[in-house]
């Protein structure tokens, strides 16, 4: 019984701890548990959430994608700018294509060339930030016909009383969970992250698996950029700054191991959503905006620590 409790806390301790914290916030902060606030938080979370779903695939293969923050900036700028130039349909297509293209570059460098994932995607973060400034010439872009375009549906409208971005988040999660848990590709992702050598000895082309995981990460970031562009109807040059770490914090708060081989889409959904409510709760309790950066730090350190402890336990057992 006692070992059951230990095992439970080792696996779910962090989520449980933050859950308790949220209950405390709910009891002490006015306006936290209101439909308006909850939907507001969910609208925000849907952007990081969709990104986190793609990043979850990369993390399960035992790798990282830190390029998603400035990728979001670039893709949002592309979506908004192309909306003015080529119209909403073309803008969406181009944004998705650009996201997939960037994912392919990351995937080739990490999967095929075999470079270190942390360095490749950090360098990509810098490169894309530079590309943003080159593309936009340093000025912010705005959708010109913001009041009339159907592009507004992705970030601003509700369907059956639920915000559309939240529905997109949910649909993405359902599709991704199916992909991860039920398909050949999902099994390969777990195998490559769990033991890449054994995966190769089982005839799995590990480099392709890694490649496709990065492509998925690019694709989900493109979807997030469409939501973002539609919601803001514009894009600043720094709109995605810091998102890479918020996303990573959500993924590992959910319990997906940074060491690879284990994780789940629904746990990522839970982790990133909880992180959104924690940051919102802190704001409502009167803490200044910048506190959320500190929370991201704390979540990452704690989650990695707990994960390491669980791994040690497993190795000793």
């Amino acid at each position: 019984m006692q070992t059951d409790l230990k095992a439970f806390l080792r696996r779910h301790g962090l989520l449980t701890g933050f859950g308790v914290f949220l209950i405390g916030v709910a009891l002490s902060a006015d306006g936290f548990v209101t439909p308006g606030n909850i939907f507001d938080v969910l609208r925000q979370v849907s952007i990081t959430g969709v990104m986190a779903i793609g990043v979850t695939f990369v993390v399960i293969t035992g790798r990282l994608d830190l390029s998603v923050g400035s990728m979001l900036t670039l893709l949002t700028v592309v979506a908004v700018d192309q909306h003015n130039v080529a119209g909403p349909g073309m803008a969406i297509a181009l944004t998705l294509a650009a996201g997939i293209g960037i994912g392919m570059v990351n995937g080739v460098l990490v999967g095929f060339v075999g470079l270190n994932a942390l360095i490749v995607t950090l360098a990509m973060l810098s490169f894309l930030q530079g590309l943003v400034l080159f593309y936009s010439g340093g000025s912010n872009v705005n959708v010109q016909n913001a009041q009339t375009t159907w592009f507004a549906v992705f970030g601003r409208r509700d369907l059956f009383g639920v915000p559309v971005p939240v529905l997109i988040f949910l649909m993405t999660a359902i599709a991704a969970a199916f992909l991860l848990n039920r398909t050949i590709f999902g099994r390969q992702v777990f195998a490559v992250g769990g033991n890449e050598t054994a995966a190769r000895f089982s005839g799995i082309a590990a480099r392709w698996t890694v490649f496709w995981a990065y492509v998925l990460s690019g694709l989900t970031t493109a979807i997030a950029a469409i939501i973002m562009g539609s919601r803001v109807m514009g894009a600043q040059n720094t709109i995605g700054q810091g998102y890479e770490l918020t996303v990573l914090a959500g993924v590992i708060l959910g319990g997906t191991s940074l060491l690879g081989g284990s994780g789940s889409i629904w746990r990522t959904v839970l982790g990133i959503t909880m992180l959104g409510f924690i940051q919102n709760g802190l704001l409502l309790l009167g803490y200044p905006y910048y506190v959320q950066w500190l929370v991201t730090w704390a979540v990452i350190i704690l989650a990695v620590w707990v994960d390491l402890g669980a791994k040690r336990g497993r190795i000793l057992a």
Binding site: T183, I184, F185, R187, Q188, S202, I204, G261, S262
Partner: peptide, 26 residues
């Protein structure tokens, strides 16, 4: 030989995923 954190079933079918899938669904 094995992906240690996987179960026995997933390890057993790992080299033959295609033959245990219909339209890529396991």
């Amino acid at each position: 030989g094995l992906v240690l954190m996987m179960g026995g079933q997933d390890n057993t079918t790992l080299p033959h995923l295609n033959s245990y899938a219909r339209a890529t669904v396991m």
